[in-house]
Design a protein around this nucleic acid. Structure first.
Length: 623
RNA sequence: GGGGACGUAGCUCAGUUGGUUAGAGCGCUGCCCUGUCACGGCAGAGGUCGCGGGUUCGAGCCCCGUCGUCCCCGCCA
């Protein structure tokens, strides 16, 4: 088949914009053949582009040549249709299509390019398996759903840029080829040709650069920054991902919060969803007590302390450790579970750290009617709610080097709360059809109002600030105190005197923003005084020499008039994932990698030539 | 590093207790069709059952290994 040339043709309209009011216009449409319906002397071609689909009609009586071209057209061919917009007859209007009131009567059809039969059709609703989708990513990205996801992504990024620019933030780029910074992940390394045996690292985040930009007097910085971490992947983790990264001088924690609330609500508004501000706040300890997790999903009720429902005798009889929390989790409208359902749920509960649970309230009611009634009352359990009591198992003896510290949760307490919190999340996922709390989010994501106006997102999207994380974590293996985050996070000023005497009690000026059970971002007020920085390093058991070796350039910079500063980084991919209603980051990243960090389209990584390796002074030990 | 699910036609999947020539829908090819929009009708092509080994008279099915994709734990503040 000979292909046609575009010639001087110019697109007059996209495939998504023609309406009844355009009837009579002469138009040129350019796009892909979505479908062909061949009735013999009458052929319909659906033309598709990013903007939509329009029907082109080819009537043999009205033009033999154009009709003949249409006979040759096949799905995914690229064609130009020249013709007139015509109102469709009343009985053939297609209300399912935005352009369904009109059609283009083609006077000329040019086939600008043909296409092999694709391994899967972008026009089909059924989606192929991910391996095929990723290999032929360009076909996958043609699908309207994917095009929509990237529209969302673009709008979010643009809204963030506009908002932050309006707040005085400069967008400043930082290097990709740099040295290892202190996030705890493995680095992707780039070998140096001119310095044998030396490597650059790709940034896990621009953390130290943005702090140095504050020292540099840039006052307010942001960047939509690519970050790289060489760790095993998950549905919500890719080896390279994008953060909305920002830093500012002289902030209070609340200053950062207002900025983030501002750009998040602007981003949501850009895709048609209102997000009320300010976001609620809870401390890390409250989050653990109330939700058993540091990224609570507020769409469902939290945990309830129900220890007071039980007498000491009750607890002893139930083999419950009275020194540990006793909490109830409630999932609305799940109803009573059958014996089989309860058995099926067993693997969802983590018993490794001495937690156990009672999910048969009927039995509890038989043996301990008063306690059961009190649990139901405290947890405000409706008749059709699923209620489960989680507690410490008195029968398991955890060899606990427990780190109880004044005013903070102990590791064993956290273990009980976590077991309950994770169980809550798992059961909520499993019984989503029954409680319906997640369907609200799906409905908001798919709301048709978003095209025309604003949808209320207050029930569907539940952001929350989590503050006052512990400064240190106890490493069970080494017995050392480790920074919970990076070691440049400032402790609370009033906790500083306990850095050595009681590290577990020290709160960090560190905060997370979470939404619907997903961590969206985290940040902190940083240390700006060299002396405090040294104290932190010492508390971490790091010698001055070691600190100098790892962060010397930064410690040096700290000494030249560093202003108080702080900031945050939010995962752009995750925000878009929520707004797209997707279950995986791969749905919102144009060219993502598989769970084994492989790019199936370009087939990376690959071996390289001996020559390249020699130049880089590298000799692989295998492969 | 560990656990789980999946792998059969281009795509989505079925395939009984191990038994003759491995099926369906969509897609594809050809012919027919002037109002379809998931068009329709007739005919047809299309298979290394992921790969390797084993058990067996006989393996898509059982066993061992291996590769790939996905999910989870560890890991990732």
């Amino acid at each position: 088949m000979t292909l046609d040339f575009l010639g001087t043709l110019q697109r007059t309209h996209t495939c998504g914009e023609l309406r009844a009011s355009d009837a009579g216009k002469s138009v040129v449409l350019l796009g892909w053949v979505n479908r062909r319906r061949d009735h013999g002397n009458l052929i319909f071609l659906d033309l598709r582009d990013r903007y939509g689909i329009s029907q082109v009609v080819l009537d043999k009586d009205l033009g033999d040549a154009a009709h003949a071209k249409a006979e040759q057209a096949r799905p995914e061919y690229v064609v130009a249709a020249v013709g007139k917009v015509r109102l469709r007859g009343k009985d053939v209007v297609n209300p399912k299509m935005a352009t369904g009131e009109v059609e283009i009567v083609a006077e000329e059809l040019r086939i600008l390019n043909d296409a092999k039969v694709p391994p899967f059709s972008p026009a089909e609703d059924a989606i192929a398996n991910e391996e095929v989708r990723l290999k032929y990513r360009y076909l996958d990205l043609r699908r309207p759903e994917m095009q929509h996801n990237f529209e969302v992504r673009h709008k979010v990024a643009l809204a963030v840029r506009e908002y932050l620019s309006g707040q005085g933030f400069y967008e400043i780029e930082t290097p990709f080829m740099t040295r290892s910074t202190p996030e705890g992940a493995r680095d992707y390394l780039v070998p140096s040709r001119v310095h044998p045996g030396n490597f650059y690292a790709l940034p896990q985040s621009p953390q130290l650069f943005k702090q140095i930009l504050m020292i540099s007097g840039m006052d307010r910085y942001f960047q939509i920054a690519r970050c790289f971490r060489d760790e095993d992947l998950r549905a919500d983790r890719q080896p390279e991902f994008t953060q909305i990264d920002l830093e500012m001088t002289f902030p209070q924690q609340e200053t950062v919060f207002r900025i983030v609330e501002g750009f998040l609500s602007a981003a949501f508004k850009a895709v048609g969803i209102t997000l009320p501000t300010p976001f609620p706040q809870i401390t890390y300890d409250e989050a653990m007590r109330n939700y058993g997790i540091d990224k609570p999903d507020l769409r469902l009720p939290g945990l309830t302390d129900v220890k007071s429902a039980f007498t000491a005798e009750n607890l002893a009889a139930l083999q419950i450790d009275a020194s540990l929390p006793v909490v109830a989790l409630r999932i609305p409208k799940v109803g009573e579970l059958s014996r089989k359902e309860r058995d099926d749920n067993k693997p969802l509960f983590d018993t490794r750290k001495g937690a156990k649970y009672i999910d048969d309230l009927k039995r509890l009611e038989k043996g301990f009617p008063e306690a059961a009634a009190k649990v139901r009352e405290l947890a405000q359990g409706g008749a059709d709610d699923l209620l489960i009591v989680v507690a410490g198992d008195a029968a398991t003896h955890i060899k606990a080097s427990d780190t109880k510290s004044a005013g903070r949760l102990s590791e064993r307490e956290i273990a009980i709360y976590s077991a309950a919190g994770n169980f809550r999340v798992e059961l909520a996922k499993k019984y989503a059809d029954r409680h319906g709390a997640f369907a609200v989010t799906d409905a908001a994501v798919n709301s048709p109002e978003r095209d025309t106006g604003l949808t209320d997102g207050s029930a569907a999207f539940r952001p929350i600030w989590v503050t006052d994380f512990p400064m240190f974590e106890h490493d069970e293996e080494t017995g050392k105190w480790m920074p919970s985050h990076h070691p440049f996070t400032s402790p609370h000023e009033e906790d500083m005197d306990r850095l050595v005497s009681d590290p577990a009690s020290v709160r960090a000026r560190y905060y997370d923003v979470a939404m619907n059970g997903l961590e969206l971002g985290s940040g902190s007020i940083r240390i700006h005084q060299q002396q405090v920085q040294q104290e932190i390093f010492r508390a971490l058991g790091m010698s001055d020499e070691e600190a100098r070796e790892r962060f010397g350039f930064f410690l040096e910079a700290l000494q030249y008039g560093t202003p108080p500063h702080g900031g945050i980084a939010l995962g752009l991919d995750r925000i878009v994932m929520i707004l797209a209603g997707a279950n995986s980051l791969r749905e919102v990243i144009a060219f993502p990698k598989t769970a084994k960090a492989i790019d199936l389209m370009v087939d990376a990584p690959t071996p390289v030539s001996e020559q390249q390796l020699r130049e880089l002074h590298i000799r692989p030990t295998k492969g």
